[in-house]
Amino acid sequence: MRRMPERQSPRPKLGVFKFASCDGCQLSILNLEDDLLALGQALEISYFPEASSHMDAGPYDLALVEGSITREEDVHRIRAVREQATVLVTIGACATAGGIQALRNWADIESYKRLVYPSPEWIRTLETSTPISDHVKVDYELRGCPIDKDQLLRVLTDLLAGVRPRLARDSVCLECKRRGTVCVLVAKGVPCLGPVTSGGCGAICPSMGRDCYGCFGPADAREKAGSHVPNTASLAKHFHEHLGLIPAEILRRFRGINGNAPSFQGESGAWERRADA
């Protein structure tokens, strides 16, 4: 386990870096509000362009990385960040799985460019959007679109205390049941991804009566092949046979914000083949 320096003076240096992303996860840091002062006392915020135009050079004890790799320059820049960081933590679905922009991985990038930009010839971009871990070693991953600020605070607290952050990848269902939310899948018949999605969000969507769309990515995805963990195939089959979703709808269910995450990617691919058949 990589460790940050023990609590000391000078304070550990924090750098916050952005790649292809919407900045929402960085805003989650600023949304810590009541804890921001304590955070500023515990860490020296050396590089955080979203928050301050004062930017110190590295190295950094801790780097928080938002966004995915979509340009040739990104590939080089993330390596430079990694070289300067003792501990590197990716924050959010873009950095951990490629984000919604990874939809390009299934499309023709040239047609996407023509669709979006009036002068597509000025756009230089890679054909894919890939997670940070495809390019450099990542120490810890914070999931979500956006991340949960309390989970972020816990990880920072753990790192400052010199202990391994405990990031449960249990299902959203566990959090629903702990807070007494009625299951929307069973009681309303909506295609909720909660059973195969990692919690950490506090099960916000089902508590508002809507189905989880998987923004925290696959639950428990550390197991070996053949373990059925997470069991996207069984849930998708249920959507199809009992909730009446057609293959194209199941494909779209899994190909969303975390569509590029391995098990969701496999499931959407399987239903794409059925939709095409």
């Binding site: 269902c173 566990l174 049941k177 299951c183 195969v196 963990v229 997470p230 069991n231 195939a233």
Partner: peptide, 10 residues
């Protein structure tokens, strides 16, 4: 049953 179960904890 292992192929059906979601291990979702419900």
């Amino acid at each position: 049953v292992g192929a059906r179960c979601l291990a979702c904890t419900n």
